[in-house]
Design a protein around this nucleic acid. Structure first.
Lengths: 160, 160
DNA sequence: GTGTGACTTGAAGCGCGATTCAAGTCAAGG
DNA sequence: CCTTGACTTGAATCGCGCTTCAAGTCACAC
């Protein structure tokens, strides 16, 4: 039990992340190395769980900064709980959107309309509520599906 | 019926996109303006449908280039059909991932573990197949959920 | 003591999707 | 005619999530 500690290279290999990514995450406060072996960072094995969580959250469209906030959360942080619940709601929308998209693609791959885009069925798929924020300015640049972002404010005044 | 044509400002307003975005899309071949009124681009009203489609596709994680390819597709482009079907499959995975994430968040917002991250239930949520590509190098930088990207090749030899 | 080789750092670069800027052009109105 | 103001263009910039680079440092084997 002397050293269950993992070398950075090992963590990189097991997690599938590049060492540079691990350092990057550390700088951003997502993970902590638990010491050094010479210059080398060493990690406790449970860092792998954490990295798996991070990977999942990233895959779900959360930013590094958001994840960092979640990771330090305690049960009494009610504000954060609320934000989590809201995220969950946003994810529902994303799921709905992706589902529609999937159906549209399925249809498209068997539909016989001239330019595929012209297919009325295909088009109908997208008539629903057009994504919330998606596209609008915002220097914070949400990505995935307009997940976070309370939206608002455009620049040019082009807005209504 | 003289001019059902829309001014760029109008399209911007109705679509919720910035004019700069419309020009950007035009440059990338996603939409076409159908003429000019002076310098001003004018669009046929159906461009709005197209923009809705684009917004949806973007929300689903497709790149601008991919969307451009889809938009010019004809029924006889079998290769593209295949790619669409594959995209649909990838979306299924994304949907599954988001669903798990949503459940995890739901749980997290009511769970009472010290650092929320320590909750075993919460953690269990992420033990599944950790996203495919997510995080790995690749100068093509996939985003959302590792959607596209046939993945592969890492540098460090980090291997699996 | 000298290599070797994998790490360390900070800074710079990349790809994507836009936005923003500077400078120019045009139509309409006073 | 000259202003106004919304557009035009191309080029530059931004934010995110990393990767890559250059230069330096350390443990370990010889």
């Amino acid at each position: 039990m002397a050293e269950p500690l993992l070398d950075i290279a090992e963590v990189a290999e097991r997690s599938g992340l590049a060492p540079s990514a691990l350092r990057f995450y550390e700088k951003r406060g997502l993970v902590a190395s638990s010491g050094r072996n010479g210059l080398r960072r060493t990690y406790r094995p449970d860092v792998l769980d954490r990295l798996a969580l991070i990977a999942c959250a990233r895959g779900a469209g959360f930013t590094i900064a958001e994840i960092a906030r979640f990771l330090v959360a305690t049960p009494d942080d009610t504000g954060l709980r609320a934000r989590m619940a809201e995220k969950a709601r946003e994810l529902e929308e994303d799921i709905a959107r992706l589902t529609r998209m999937r159906d549209g693609l399925h249809h498209a791959s068997t539909c016989m309309h001239e330019p595929l885009v012209a297919c009325p069925d295909f088009k109908r798929t997208f008539k629903g509520p057009v994504p919330p924020v998606t596209g609008r300015a915002r220097p914070d640049g949400r990505r995935l599906a307009g997940v976070a972002a309370s939206a608002g404010r455009a620049r040019t005044g082009a807005g209504e």
